[in-house]
Amino acid sequence: MSKINLTLKVWRQKNGREKGGFETYTAKDIDTDMSFLEMLDVVNEQLTHEGKEPIAFDHDCREGVCGMCGAVINGQAHGPLKGTTLCQLHMRNFRNGETLVIEPWRSRGFPILKDLVVDRSAFDRIIAAGGYISVKTGQAPDAHAVPVRKEDSDTAFDAAACIGCGACVAACPNASAMLFTAAKVSHLSHLPQGQVEAPERVIKMVEQMDKERFGNCSNEYECEAACPKEISVEHIARMNSEYRQAKWKAKH
């Protein structure tokens, strides 16, 4: 167990209306076994004792699955490690004396609420637009009524592993939400149960995504690199194809 000292430059912003800026703090005697969020906890305890307001940051499960946490560390969403959420990033990945610039996700689609906390309700609206199979409770046939190819089921799972953290948007040079949207489109359309509504779904979801004022995809694949669940951009290609076909084949 070793200890390191760090300089933190943290984005502080009182709320969505006021302007924000960087504040510098020192994090002393940070145990390298700590997670990044535990390091922030320690800094926050220290700030509280100094009579300052602690840094607001979203977090919940702290085991990489709820999708609540996330910040950009030195320009990288969720920090330097691949396939990792901020809560699973440990301080042994940083060097003694390092300066860390900590910023919120930055996108017009994710307005800042306070400090590192952003409003990701746009993602909920994209799902609400069509990210489901419209089956009501009680309508389902027996689970074995329709076999599903294992390969399709596995691919569907790969896409369904999305935790909705928003790192794809944060990392995209254009703040585009294509990977998030495509993951849901592709998850459902890979399953026979999801194919009935697939054309309507992709159209509605893409249109809602556009309404939320995210940027456009320019195939730079930074989303895939930042995704803590390493969801492939192949799902984006699939959505592009589904959208094109749905639009051109529609009868009216």
């Binding site: 030195n74 320009g75 996108s107 254009n174 930042a226």
Partner: peptide, 13 residues
């Protein structure tokens, strides 16, 4: 779409 630029830019991919 990126209404505020990042203080630090670094690609992960």
């Amino acid at each position: 779409a990126r209404n505020t630029q990042y203080g630090v830019n670094a690609a992960k991919g």
